[in-house]
Protein backbone atom coordinates (compact mmCIF):
# COMPACT_ATOMS: atom_id res chain seq x y z
CA UNK A 1 0.00 0.00 0.00
CA UNK A 2 1.30 3.41 -0.94
CA UNK A 3 1.11 6.01 1.81
CA UNK A 4 -0.14 9.42 0.66
CA UNK A 5 1.33 12.36 2.57
CA UNK A 6 0.18 15.94 2.07
CA UNK A 7 2.50 18.81 2.89
CA UNK A 8 0.25 21.74 3.65
CA UNK A 9 0.05 24.99 5.63
CA UNK A 10 -2.69 27.35 4.50
CA UNK A 11 -0.29 30.27 4.39
CA UNK A 12 2.17 30.75 1.55
CA UNK A 13 5.94 31.10 1.86
CA UNK A 14 6.33 29.05 5.02
CA UNK A 15 8.39 26.26 3.43
CA UNK A 16 5.97 23.70 1.98
CA UNK A 17 7.89 23.12 -1.23
CA UNK A 18 11.28 23.13 0.54
CA UNK A 19 9.85 20.56 2.94
CA UNK A 20 8.27 18.42 0.21
CA UNK A 21 11.55 18.35 -1.70
CA UNK A 22 13.63 17.46 1.36
CA UNK A 23 11.31 14.87 2.89
CA UNK A 24 10.68 13.09 -0.40
CA UNK A 25 14.44 13.02 -0.98
CA UNK A 26 15.00 11.76 2.56
CA UNK A 27 12.51 8.91 2.10
CA UNK A 28 14.07 7.98 -1.24
CA UNK A 29 17.56 7.98 0.34
CA UNK A 30 16.20 5.52 2.89
CA UNK A 31 15.36 3.20 0.02
CA UNK A 32 11.65 3.87 -0.41
CA UNK A 33 10.26 4.37 -3.89
CA UNK A 34 8.86 7.87 -3.61
CA UNK A 35 6.88 10.25 -5.82
CA UNK A 36 6.38 13.93 -5.13
CA UNK A 37 3.50 15.72 -6.86
CA UNK A 38 3.22 19.48 -7.28
CA UNK A 39 -0.43 20.51 -6.81
CA UNK A 40 0.23 24.21 -7.35
CA UNK A 41 -1.33 24.30 -10.81
CA UNK A 42 -0.51 27.58 -12.53
CA UNK A 43 2.32 28.45 -10.12
CA UNK A 44 4.55 25.40 -10.19
CA UNK A 45 7.86 25.64 -8.39
CA UNK A 46 8.69 22.18 -7.11
CA UNK A 47 10.50 21.53 -10.42
CA UNK A 48 12.84 24.47 -9.71
CA UNK A 49 13.49 23.43 -6.11
CA UNK A 50 14.25 19.87 -7.26
CA UNK A 51 16.37 21.17 -10.14
CA UNK A 52 14.46 19.41 -12.91
CA UNK A 53 12.73 22.40 -14.54
CA UNK A 54 14.34 21.82 -17.92
CA UNK A 55 13.18 18.25 -18.11
CA UNK A 56 9.45 18.93 -17.74
CA UNK A 57 7.55 17.71 -20.79
CA UNK A 58 4.20 16.53 -19.46
CA UNK A 59 2.52 17.44 -16.19
CA UNK A 60 -0.15 16.40 -13.70
CA UNK A 61 -3.00 17.91 -15.73
CA UNK A 62 -1.85 16.13 -18.89
CA UNK A 63 -2.04 12.86 -16.97
CA UNK A 64 -5.43 13.71 -15.42
CA UNK A 65 -6.78 14.53 -18.89
CA UNK A 66 -5.29 11.40 -20.45
CA UNK A 67 -3.01 13.40 -22.76
CA UNK A 68 0.04 11.60 -21.39
CA UNK A 69 0.59 8.52 -19.30
CA UNK A 70 2.26 8.57 -15.90
CA UNK A 71 5.52 7.12 -17.12
CA UNK A 72 5.86 9.93 -19.64
CA UNK A 73 5.14 12.62 -17.06
CA UNK A 74 7.20 11.34 -14.12
CA UNK A 75 10.67 12.88 -13.98
CA UNK A 76 13.43 10.83 -12.40
CA UNK A 77 15.35 12.81 -9.78
CA UNK A 78 18.95 13.63 -10.61
CA UNK A 79 20.27 12.56 -7.20
CA UNK A 80 18.14 9.57 -6.19
CA UNK A 81 17.26 6.57 -8.33
CA UNK A 82 13.96 5.86 -6.61
CA UNK A 83 12.59 9.42 -6.48
CA UNK A 84 10.23 10.77 -9.13
CA UNK A 85 8.70 14.20 -9.60
CA UNK A 86 5.29 14.88 -11.11
CA UNK A 87 5.21 18.58 -11.95
CA UNK A 88 2.15 20.82 -11.98
CA UNK A 89 0.90 22.46 -15.14
CA UNK A 90 2.04 26.03 -15.58
CA UNK A 91 -0.57 27.02 -18.15
CA UNK A 92 -3.85 25.71 -16.75
CA UNK A 93 -5.69 26.80 -13.65
CA UNK A 94 -6.60 24.80 -10.58
CA UNK A 95 -10.10 24.00 -11.84
CA UNK A 96 -8.46 21.52 -14.18
CA UNK A 97 -7.94 19.24 -11.15
CA UNK A 98 -10.81 16.80 -10.61
CA UNK A 99 -11.24 14.50 -7.68
CA UNK A 100 -11.63 11.48 -9.99
CA UNK A 101 -8.53 12.51 -11.94
CA UNK A 102 -6.38 12.90 -8.83
CA UNK A 103 -7.66 9.63 -7.39
CA UNK A 104 -6.75 7.80 -10.59
CA UNK A 105 -3.23 9.27 -10.65
CA UNK A 106 -2.67 8.16 -7.04
CA UNK A 107 -4.02 4.67 -7.76
CA UNK A 108 -1.79 4.37 -10.82
CA UNK A 109 1.24 5.44 -8.79
CA UNK A 110 0.41 2.74 -6.28
CA UNK A 111 0.27 0.17 -9.09
CA UNK A 112 3.72 1.31 -10.19
CA UNK A 113 4.97 0.20 -6.78
CA UNK A 114 5.50 3.51 -5.02
CA UNK A 115 5.84 3.35 -1.24
CA UNK A 116 5.28 7.02 -0.54
CA UNK A 117 3.45 9.71 -2.49
CA UNK A 118 3.99 13.28 -1.28
CA UNK A 119 1.50 15.93 -2.31
CA UNK A 120 2.98 19.43 -2.25
CA UNK A 121 -0.06 21.60 -1.57
CA UNK A 122 -0.50 25.14 -2.89
CA UNK A 123 -1.15 27.92 -0.39
CA UNK A 124 -4.74 28.87 0.39
CA UNK A 125 -7.81 26.78 1.04
CA UNK A 126 -9.13 26.69 -2.52
CA UNK A 127 -9.50 23.78 -4.90
CA UNK A 128 -5.80 23.00 -5.36
CA UNK A 129 -5.17 22.81 -1.62
CA UNK A 130 -8.29 20.70 -1.01
CA UNK A 131 -7.37 18.33 -3.87
CA UNK A 132 -3.88 17.89 -2.40
CA UNK A 133 -5.25 16.82 0.99
CA UNK A 134 -8.34 14.88 -0.10
CA UNK A 135 -6.65 11.49 -0.37
CA UNK A 136 -4.04 11.96 2.35
CA UNK A 137 -3.21 9.26 4.89
CA UNK A 138 -0.86 11.59 6.74
CA UNK A 139 -0.41 15.35 6.79
CA UNK A 140 2.67 17.41 7.52
CA UNK A 141 1.44 20.84 8.55
CA UNK A 142 4.21 23.38 8.05
CA UNK A 143 4.02 26.39 10.32
CA UNK A 144 6.25 29.37 11.05
CA UNK A 145 6.36 30.65 14.64
CA UNK A 146 4.32 33.66 13.65
CA UNK A 147 0.67 34.63 14.20
CA UNK A 148 -0.74 34.50 10.66
CA UNK A 149 0.94 31.20 9.86
CA UNK A 150 -0.28 29.51 13.05
CA UNK A 151 -3.83 30.71 12.51
CA UNK A 152 -3.82 29.48 8.90
CA UNK A 153 -2.40 26.12 10.01
CA UNK A 154 -5.29 25.73 12.39
CA UNK A 155 -7.69 26.52 9.57
CA UNK A 156 -6.14 23.91 7.29
CA UNK A 157 -6.34 21.36 10.14
CA UNK A 158 -10.08 22.04 10.27
CA UNK A 159 -10.30 21.37 6.53
CA UNK A 160 -8.29 18.14 6.87
CA UNK A 161 -10.72 17.01 9.54
CA UNK A 162 -13.77 17.75 7.42
CA UNK A 163 -12.90 17.40 3.73
CA UNK A 164 -10.38 14.58 3.54
CA UNK A 165 -11.69 11.23 2.27
CA UNK A 166 -10.78 9.65 5.59
CA UNK A 167 -12.93 12.19 7.42
CA UNK A 168 -15.85 11.95 5.00
CA UNK A 169 -15.86 8.15 5.03
CA UNK A 170 -15.45 8.05 8.81
CA UNK A 171 -12.25 6.03 8.62
CA UNK A 172 -9.27 6.44 10.93
CA UNK A 173 -8.44 10.17 10.74
CA UNK A 174 -5.51 11.59 8.77
CA UNK A 175 -2.36 11.33 10.90
CA UNK A 176 -1.24 14.88 11.54
CA UNK A 177 2.32 16.07 12.11
CA UNK A 178 3.44 19.59 12.97
CA UNK A 179 6.65 20.88 11.40
CA UNK A 180 7.83 24.26 12.67
CA UNK A 181 10.11 25.94 10.15
CA UNK A 182 12.20 29.12 10.02
CA UNK A 183 12.85 28.79 13.73
CA UNK A 184 15.23 31.17 15.43
CA UNK A 185 16.24 29.94 18.93
CA UNK A 186 17.82 33.29 19.75
CA UNK A 187 14.67 35.25 19.02
CA UNK A 188 12.67 32.72 21.04
CA UNK A 189 15.05 33.16 23.96
CA UNK A 190 14.74 36.93 23.65
CA UNK A 191 10.98 36.58 23.90
CA UNK A 192 10.27 37.93 20.45
CA UNK A 193 9.29 34.70 18.72
CA UNK A 194 6.76 32.00 19.62
CA UNK A 195 8.52 28.86 20.80
CA UNK A 196 7.85 25.52 19.12
CA UNK A 197 6.14 24.49 22.35
CA UNK A 198 3.80 27.48 22.05
CA UNK A 199 2.94 26.55 18.47
CA UNK A 200 2.33 22.95 19.41
CA UNK A 201 0.20 23.96 22.38
CA UNK A 202 -1.91 26.17 20.13
CA UNK A 203 -2.38 23.66 17.31
CA UNK A 204 -2.53 20.54 19.51
CA UNK A 205 -0.97 18.06 17.09
CA UNK A 206 2.22 16.00 17.52
CA UNK A 207 5.48 17.71 16.60
CA UNK A 208 7.62 15.98 13.99
CA UNK A 209 10.44 18.49 13.93
CA UNK A 210 11.81 22.00 14.02
CA UNK A 211 13.77 23.41 11.08
CA UNK A 212 16.03 26.34 11.98
CA UNK A 213 15.97 29.58 10.02
CA UNK A 214 19.00 29.44 7.77
CA UNK A 215 20.66 31.07 4.78
CA UNK A 216 21.29 27.56 3.49
CA UNK A 217 17.70 27.21 2.27
CA UNK A 218 18.24 30.00 -0.26
CA UNK A 219 21.58 28.49 -1.28
CA UNK A 220 19.83 25.18 -1.89
CA UNK A 221 16.99 26.66 -3.94
CA UNK A 222 19.44 28.76 -5.97
CA UNK A 223 21.08 25.54 -7.12
CA UNK A 224 17.98 23.41 -7.45
CA UNK A 225 19.19 20.96 -4.82
CA UNK A 226 16.84 19.90 -2.00
CA UNK A 227 18.15 21.34 1.29
CA UNK A 228 18.52 17.87 2.83
CA UNK A 229 21.51 17.22 0.51
CA UNK A 230 23.56 20.16 1.84
CA UNK A 231 26.79 19.21 3.58
CA UNK A 232 27.37 20.41 7.16
CA UNK A 233 24.08 22.24 7.26
CA UNK A 234 21.78 22.39 10.30
CA UNK A 235 18.79 22.46 7.96
CA UNK A 236 19.89 19.26 6.23
CA UNK A 237 20.40 17.48 9.56
CA UNK A 238 17.07 18.75 10.87
CA UNK A 239 15.28 17.38 7.79
CA UNK A 240 17.09 14.03 8.14
CA UNK A 241 15.79 13.92 11.72
CA UNK A 242 12.26 14.64 10.49
CA UNK A 243 12.46 11.75 8.03
CA UNK A 244 13.77 9.47 10.79
CA UNK A 245 10.91 10.46 13.13
CA UNK A 246 8.45 9.95 10.29
CA UNK A 247 9.75 6.38 10.08
CA UNK A 248 9.15 6.01 13.84
CA UNK A 249 12.78 6.33 14.86
CA UNK A 250 13.53 8.18 18.06
CA UNK A 251 15.50 11.39 17.54
CA UNK A 252 15.90 14.16 20.10
CA UNK A 253 15.15 17.69 18.90
CA UNK A 254 18.19 19.66 17.75
CA UNK A 255 18.81 23.32 16.98
CA UNK A 256 16.08 24.52 19.33
CA UNK A 257 18.31 25.92 22.09
CA UNK A 258 20.28 29.09 21.61
CA UNK A 259 24.02 28.73 22.06
CA UNK A 260 25.95 31.93 22.59
CA UNK A 261 28.68 32.19 19.97
CA UNK A 262 32.10 31.62 21.47
CA UNK A 263 34.78 34.31 21.61
CA UNK A 264 36.65 33.01 18.57
CA UNK A 265 33.49 32.86 16.52
CA UNK A 266 32.60 36.39 17.52
CA UNK A 267 36.04 37.68 16.66
CA UNK A 268 36.51 35.91 13.39
CA UNK A 269 32.93 35.64 12.25
CA UNK A 270 32.27 32.53 10.30
CA UNK A 271 28.95 30.86 9.93
Amino acid sequence: MARVIVVTSGKGGVGKTTTSASISTGLALRGFKTAVIDFDVGLRNLDLIMGCERRVVYDLINVVNGEANLNQALIKDKHCDNLFILPASQTRDKDALTEEGVEKVLKDLEHLGFDYILCDSPAGIERGAVMALTFADEAIVVSNPEVSSVRDSDRILGILQSKSRRAIEGREPVKEHLLVTRYSPKRVEDGEMLSYKDVQELLRIPLIGVIPESDDVLQASNQGTPAIHLKDSDVAIAYQDVVARFLDEDRPLRFVAYEKPGLLKRLFGGK
Binding site: R151, V188, L202
Partner: peptide, 25 residues
Protein backbone atom coordinates in the same frame (compact mmCIF):
# COMPACT_ATOMS: atom_id res chain seq x y z
CA UNK B 1 15.68 46.08 26.26
CA UNK B 2 13.26 44.85 23.64
CA UNK B 3 9.63 44.25 24.37
CA UNK B 4 8.69 40.63 24.88
CA UNK B 5 6.07 40.24 22.20
CA UNK B 6 5.96 36.45 21.88
CA UNK B 7 3.67 36.11 24.90
CA UNK B 8 1.32 38.70 23.39
CA UNK B 9 1.26 36.69 20.16
CA UNK B 10 0.46 33.49 22.03
CA UNK B 11 -2.37 35.04 23.97
CA UNK B 12 -3.93 36.61 20.88
CA UNK B 13 -3.62 33.34 18.96
CA UNK B 14 -5.14 31.20 21.67
CA UNK B 15 -8.19 33.47 21.74
CA UNK B 16 -8.69 33.67 17.99
CA UNK B 17 -8.07 29.97 17.42
CA UNK B 18 -10.53 28.98 20.15
CA UNK B 19 -13.08 31.32 18.60
CA UNK B 20 -12.58 30.10 15.05
CA UNK B 21 -12.62 26.46 16.08
CA UNK B 22 -15.96 27.20 17.66
CA UNK B 23 -17.43 28.76 14.54
CA UNK B 24 -15.83 26.71 11.79
CA UNK B 25 -16.07 23.27 13.25
Amino acid sequence: SKQKTASVAKERLSLIIAHERGTNR
